[in-house]
Simulated assay, not measured.
Amino acid sequence: MSLFWRIYLLNAAVLTVAAGLLMLGPVTVSTPVLFTEALIVTAGLAAMLAANAVLLRIGLAPLQRLTRAMTTIDLLQPGPRPAVSGHAAIADLIRTFNTMLDRLEAERATSSARALSAQEGERRRIAQELHDEVGQTLTAVLLDLKRVADQAPEPVRSQVHQVQESTRDSLDEIRRIARRLRPGVLDELGLISALKALTTEISGHTGLSVRQHFDANLPDLGHEAELVCYRVAQEALTNTARHAHAVHVELTLRRTPAGVQLCVRDDGRGLRRSTEGAGIRGMRERALLVRAQLSLGASPTGGTEVRLHLPDPDGSL
């Protein structure tokens, strides 16, 4: 039965009962209307309205739950689907909404996978060009400066040495940027070695005290999941260094019954009701690609805690 007919029949039932009581009951209406008759009719009307409101509230309750779900749904944070309840059209509407959510999440995951794959490809290309083109050019400049310094008189030689140091610092910075764009250690030595190199680099350039702990015998998550884990750790550590005003940060990678959990915890100022920026949304999108769950909250030390739950390779969370 459609929603229209359900509402129509509910109202018809209430009006029919009221008409039957009026015809079969002892109550009559005179002309002019007496005060007692007006009170009886008013009481009957109030009873009809109350009964109609209760019946409609019960009948439309599933629609109210669906409305709340529609206003709070977030494709980046999948949650339980609204329960299919109610009759006919209402149940069909909830079922259609759940199907639409499944399709939207699948389409978003596909488009995000393409976008992130293109982003990683562009990062590899830029890193390669920085290493091959700019890096080699600066290396040649350093060699030329060395030859000039060997032949230059003493006052000029000290100035050339200063230029050499500046050029060498620029070359080191370009290499660091290239490593951040394309984590070659991840491809060559694996996730743990890449995370160790990342924490060493963050600690050396920001002064953060980074503690790390990695469980032994971690499962092989696959290249995509390891890349997601590395990028989430990279973004979390970068956010800590830039915004948290933290002194200590802890990075752990441990095995759980459901898979592997990455945790980045700092002692900074915390989230403070700040809105999620592009970096956090990027972490959520990456997590969805490998069916992982990302959570952000307050850490026991008062700062921020980022947790990434990665499923085991042959199961699911």
Score class of each variant (00 low, 15 high):
103 R>Q: 15
283 M>N: 05
111 S>R: 06
4 F>H: 07
272 R>K: 02
171 L>C: 01
224 E>G: 07
56 L>A: 12
151 Q>S: 15
179 R>Y: 10
50 A>Q: 09
87 H>L: 11
30 S>L: 01
72 T>M: 12
270 G>S: 02
213 H>N: 03
216 A>T: 15
103 R>K: 13
193 S>N: 00
32 P>V: 05
305 E>H: 01
308 L>K: 03
100 M>N: 13
272 R>D: 14
164 Q>V: 01
191 L>Y: 01
68 R>E: 14
279 G>Q: 08
172 D>V: 07
279 G>P: 13
183 P>N: 12
284 R>W: 12
89 A>I: 00
69 A>D: 04
143 L>T: 12
60 L>V: 13
80 P>G: 11
69 A>F: 02
275 T>R: 09
84 V>P: 01
51 A>D: 08
282 G>C: 07
34 L>M: 13
211 R>L: 09
268 G>T: 09
258 A>D: 15
176 R>W: 00
151 Q>C: 13
14 V>R: 00
123 R>K: 04
249 V>D: 12
131 H>Y: 09
254 R>P: 03
250 E>V: 10
198 L>C: 03
203 S>Q: 12
54 V>C: 08
294 L>D: 01
243 H>V: 09
153 P>W: 08
60 L>C: 12
311 P>E: 12
35 F>Q: 15
97 F>D: 09
264 V>E: 11
257 P>Y: 13
98 N>W: 06
280 I>P: 13
206 T>C: 13
141 V>E: 01
266 D>Y: 07
290 V>S: 00
235 E>S: 05
45 L>K: 06
24 L>W: 10
215 D>C: 04
294 L>N: 01
273 R>C: 04
313 P>G: 09
249 V>E: 10
131 H>M: 07
177 I>D: 04
74 D>A: 03
308 L>P: 11
80 P>E: 15
140 A>G: 10
210 V>Q: 08
15 L>I: 13
65 R>G: 14
223 H>S: 03
227 L>S: 05
99 T>S: 14
95 R>I: 02
37 E>A: 14
222 G>P: 07
235 E>I: 10
30 S>N: 06
251 L>C: 12
32 P>S: 09
192 I>E: 01
313 P>H: 06
203 S>C: 10
292 A>Q: 05
171 L>R: 01
215 D>G: 03
282 G>L: 08
121 G>D: 02
304 T>Q: 01
16 T>M: 06
180 R>N: 07
235 E>K: 05
124 R>A: 10
253 L>Q: 10
162 Q>T: 11
298 A>G: 14
143 L>H: 09
99 T>E: 14
221 L>H: 00
281 R>V: 08
244 A>D: 08
172 D>R: 08
156 V>L: 14
315 G>H: 13
197 A>T: 07
11 N>A: 06
7 I>P: 02
197 A>N: 05
180 R>A: 11
80 P>F: 09
93 L>Y: 02
108 R>W: 13
302 G>A: 07
221 L>Q: 00
148 V>F: 03
81 R>L: 13
211 R>K: 08
22 L>R: 15
194 A>K: 00
55 L>Y: 08
105 E>S: 03
4 F>G: 06
204 G>T: 13
138 L>P: 04
171 L>Q: 06
276 E>W: 14
44 G>V: 10
169 D>H: 05
41 V>K: 05
197 A>V: 07
